[in-house]
């Protein structure tokens, strides 16, 4: 059994790794997912850039990737991970599969929230002669801002969850810590403190998201 004097620095480092993984993968997938989601919305039949072929291809790709259990996906995309990060082990390597999966899920979340924007608002923007791209990014996305913030909050939590699983393939972070020091060394204390820290991270994210969404909604 490790005593807390030696564990504490490791735990602290794990928290840092988790935050790093979540921040980097959420930042990249947030942008990529937004673009793919906006493209999905825009290419839907009857929408701004209606294109049945492009829409169907993206739709199928997302439907194929999304249901794969993340723990399996982690190993399945190992060749991609190696190509991008140069290794399949460690925090950097974990960011690759997390980013891919999160992009796909965020694309769906974005699409769903954009679809809910009143078509009349889009028509009003087009009727004053706005370019379709600026209608999409200047009107549709701002109109959906509050639900988008909540969607991204949801995704923050999902990414924290994914990052914990990445611990299994040596991705580092709190998941890794809980497995090595909690599960494998029968140290319930280490497990519980990990749980507590994750709960705090998730709760903080949720509170921030709710607060931001409220601010946007209140106008």
């Amino acid at each position: 059994m490790n005593d807390w004097k030696t564990l504490a620095p490791v735990l602290l480092e794990s928290v840092g790794e988790t935050i790093y993984m979540v921040a980097v993968s959420l930042a990249i997938s947030g942008v990529v997912g937004l673009v793919i989601g906006a493209a999905l919305y825009a290419t839907r039949p009857g929408n701004l850039f209606a294109n049945r072929v492009v829409f169907s291809v993206m739709n199928v790709v997302i439907n194929v990737v999304r249901p794969i259990p993340f723990i399996i996906f982690l190993t399945a995309v190992a060749p991609v991970t190696r190509a991008v990060a140069g290794t399949t082990l460690g925090t950097e390597a974990a960011i690759v599969p997390i980013t891919i999966m999160a992009s796909v899920v965020i694309a769906r979340v974005v699409e769903q929230n954009l679809v809910a924007v009143d078509a009349g608002t889009v028509e009003a923007a087009r009727a004053v002669g706005a370019k379709r791209v600026s209608v999409l990014f200047g009107v549709v996305i701002p109109e959906a801002l509050a639900p988008l913030i909540l969607g991204y909050t949801f995704m923050f939590i999902a990414v924290v969850d994914m990052s914990a699983m990445a611990g299994y393939i040596g991705g580092g972070g709190l998941g890794n810590f809980a497995i090595i020091y909690g599960y494998q060394q029968f140290n319930a204390g280490a497990t519980w403190i990990t749980v507590a820290i994750i709960v705090v991270i998730v709760q903080s994210g949720q509170l921030l998201g709710n607060w931001l969404a409220q601010r946007v909604l209140r106008r």
Binding site: D118, T121, E123, A124, V128, G129, E143, R219
Partner: peptide, 30 residues
């Protein structure tokens, strides 16, 4: 067509204002 739309205004039954913008910003949009 975009040029033409600048010369043809339109109003709607459900108003179709931009809820994310103030009155001023709505009117300034075109």
């Amino acid at each position: 067509l975009r040029g033409l739309r600048g010369r043809v205004g339109m109003i709607f039954q459900q108003f179709n204002l931009f809820n994310s913008r103030t009155v001023r910003a709505n009117v300034a949009y075109p």
